[in-house]
Amino acid sequence: MVASAPDNSTAPQLDVLLFRLAGEVYALPSACVREVIRYRDYTPVPGAPATLPGILNQRGVVVPVVDIYPLLGLSAPPASRATRLVMLSHQEIDMALLVEAVLDLAALPPAALEPPPPALDPARARFLRGLATFEQQPVALLDLDELIAGLRAWE
């Protein structure tokens, strides 16, 4: 039997939410996005790591706030009017992802997705499913499974 390359022409497009972290454009599959809310102060939790600094109440449910800037080696800008919390649900885990700004919804053709360049820091590349270009901008598609694993391992 001869293995054939996947036919990307018939593969469904990947719907993603585009957002900005430290000036760079990132994406997550929109299927795991529940809603986007304006930034509001959260309740800090004593002894929590920098990546999980606190909790907030969203519609009666207490969810952890997730800050992936340290995970990606990025410097977090101060909260501004554009700062948003992206409410995510994945693997039965609910979380509020802190982002610099939410940009748009987009559909990425699978063929547009390329592996992260080898020169990229492996500590950062592990959190990326791939890179794409959308409207002349580089977009990094995040791997939510790896992000959650990274949050669990962060010291």
Binding site: V45, G47, T51, P64, I93, I148, R152
Partner: peptide, 17 residues
Amino acid sequence: LPALLRERLRQPWATGA
């Protein structure tokens, strides 16, 4: 507390909300 957070606490002081 959400499990993701609870398992990462440096001290076992915060138990719920």
